[in-house]
Simulated scan of single mutants.
Amino acid sequence: MEITAIMLSQLLRQQAFFVKPRERVMRTGTVRKFLAPICFLILLPSVSFAQGKGACTQTQLGDPPRIVYRCESGLVVEAEAAAALQIEGQQDQNRPGEMRLDSDAALIEVKPGNGPFQILTPHAIAAVRGTIYAVDVHDDMTSVFVVRGGVSVSRPDGSDTVLLGPGQGVNVSDGQPLVVTTWPQARVASLMARFGR
């Protein structure tokens, strides 16, 4: 179970660790006065701080460093910590309909039956309805790989659409045809290792 900052705050208030009024200090003694900061520092490394972003929460993970966006309706986007990722369009009140990824990689899981979702990059659009896939953006190319399900990939203007199935990937760059290939296990392992898998 993940503990968010709000849950931690409520827990500490319930346990009277926050010492605000002078009367409480007199009643609880000085032990609790010093216990609160110590408990907070001990719990800090294991706490996932959630930050609202539309209808999504943001959690930071380590080893390797990455940020997980969990949205209602079953959308999970796990991005490398250095990734330039922005929520672009709100598909409905439950989750965004698209995100923009301008650098590094993101692993995306979209549960079937929850409407369309797409990742926009400088080189490609990767659109899905229910799948797990990865998008890796470099200066001159975007690579898309499908773990499960299906993904349509096109150029930013919507041209040259290709369909990817499980184990398949495509590299999208200016002036080069979009060629769907089955990725070798070494390339898949290298990409998935960036998400701790």
Rank of each mutant, 00 (worst) to 15 (best):
T121P: 03
D136M: 07
Y133H: 15
I132D: 12
N114H: 12
V135L: 06
T121I: 11
T121R: 01
P122N: 09
G115F: 04
L107Y: 14
K111R: 14
T131F: 11
Y133C: 04
A124Q: 10
H123W: 09
G130W: 12
H123T: 11
A126H: 05
T121H: 06
L107G: 04
I125P: 00
T121V: 09
D136G: 06
V137R: 03
H138W: 01
I125L: 03
I108L: 14
L120R: 01
A126L: 04
K111P: 01
N114P: 05
E109A: 11
T121K: 00
A124W: 08
G130A: 07
I108K: 00
R129D: 15
A134L: 15
T121E: 10
V128R: 07
N114K: 13
E109W: 10
D136V: 10
T121F: 06
P116A: 14
A127G: 00
A124R: 01
V137L: 00
H123Y: 08
G115Q: 02
T121L: 04
P112S: 15
H123Q: 15
I125S: 06
P122C: 01
Q118M: 13
P122K: 08
A127F: 02
L107P: 03
V128S: 05
V128T: 02
A124M: 02
V137Y: 02
P116F: 13
I108M: 09
A134D: 14
I125V: 13
T131N: 12
R129E: 15
Y133A: 05
F117A: 03
R129V: 12
P112I: 10
N114R: 13
H138N: 08
H123S: 07
I132A: 10
A124C: 03
H138Q: 13
V110F: 05
G130V: 12
A126P: 02
V128H: 09
V110T: 14
G113R: 08
L107M: 14
A127I: 00
G115T: 05
G113D: 11
A124F: 07
G115A: 03
I119D: 04
Y133G: 02
L107A: 11
K111C: 07
A127N: 09
F117V: 01
H138G: 12
G113L: 01
G130M: 09
A124L: 06
I132P: 00
T131Q: 12
A126M: 08
L120E: 14
E109S: 13
D136T: 13
T131I: 03
I108R: 07
P122L: 02
T121M: 04
I119H: 00
V135N: 05
V135I: 11
G113C: 04
V135E: 02
T121W: 05
N114L: 03
T131M: 05
I119Y: 06
P122T: 03
H123P: 04
D136E: 13
G113Q: 09
Y133K: 02
N114I: 02
V110K: 14
I119R: 04
V137M: 01
L107R: 08
L120W: 08
G113M: 01
P112V: 13
G113Y: 05
G115N: 07
R129H: 10
